[in-house]
Design a protein around this nucleic acid. Sequence first.
DNA 1: CAATACGTTAAGTATAAATTGAACAAACTT
DNA 2: AAGTTTGTTCAATTTATACTTAACGTATTG
Lengths: 185, 185
Amino acid sequence: MYDPLATKKEQEEIEQAKDIVIQAITETMDIYGAAPSVGRLYATMYFVDKPITLDEMKDMLEMSKPSMSTGVRALQENGMVNRIWEKGSRKNKYSAEKDFFKSFISFYCKRWEREYKENLQAISESLAVLKTIIDDETCDEAMREEARQYYNQIEDSKRYYHWLERLVDSFYSHEIFQFIPKDKE
Amino acid sequence: MYDPLATKKEQEEIEQAKDIVIQAITETMDIYGAAPSVGRLYATMYFVDKPITLDEMKDMLEMSKPSMSTGVRALQENGMVNRIWEKGSRKNKYSAEKDFFKSFISFYCKRWEREYKENLQAISESLAVLKTIIDDETCDEAMREEARQYYNQIEDSKRYYHWLERLVDSFYSHEIFQFIPKDKE
DNA sequence: CAATACGTTAAGTATAAATTGAACAAACTT
DNA sequence: AAGTTTGTTCAATTTATACTTAACGTATTG
């Protein structure tokens, strides 16, 4: 048998090693718009290999169950946590997505999609209004020129949104990894 | 001369056309972590072609000057607004970055850089701690196995962070546009 | 069908962010 | 140097977000 005191010391060192990473993930989770406690929830779950219940989360973070419920839902919506079906258990179980590539794609593509969809929709409506003014030859020329200027600026921005669309596609299709490989060659 | 009533109607239509896009940009600016008022500030500035002062912003948004000061600084830090030096004027002037590609790169690369730097730093420290346990042959084998498991998981995550690093590089160098061109070919 | 367990909603509280007017410091003007 | 102008910081208020306890609806078990 090993020295129980040394064993305890090393157990603490493992916890410490884990905590260093948990702390860093928690810190950088603000990039993903997560409140600190939600960041900590994800970081904590990242080191739990089996799916866990809301009650286990609440015990780990020493927080309330509703907080875990809303927190885990937020993470789920970002694709950072998955719900796992476990036979025999009627409790919902969740596990952290350990593949950061997946989380990245899920998180950013969702936002980028919203960005280009909402803006392209607005652009289409806006350009239609401006076009009627530009095409109206009875209209004041200075005003038509102003309309043309806005028209061109807005029209030009479509270039970015369509690029964003292709960027999203390349992530969803994983084609991006042909250009920027997961492993450095 | 043109009919002043029709002229006014068309002037309003131009404003309406602009507002449609301003509204959409404002809405999607939450993706960039901007408070609604800061999003509106950027969207408003996007349609002003000349650099403007804090006082002009405050008049346009009907808000206080300190709000404009903090708002414009936040946008500056994201690379969405640039400070412009204008001879003769001792007021600071700012203009919105109209190149969305630039804003995109500036915003995301800053965050991604922070993500991989902070985490790789933590990972390096954490792995060092785990390694001493793994290499300590006097240590309890179950514990060493546990350390190995965490070690592998953490080591594996470096793959993602290094990929993120290369992604950032490809944006800063514009090489990304070789793979996903700004214009669809 | 009663009893329990589970997850969510609701309501209330606490904490954090945004906003403003007032005060301040720095730089320019005369 | 006195008086302005400009931008920021400060303190106070409002507003929004996060969190908790309690209550609820649903499903499951005995």
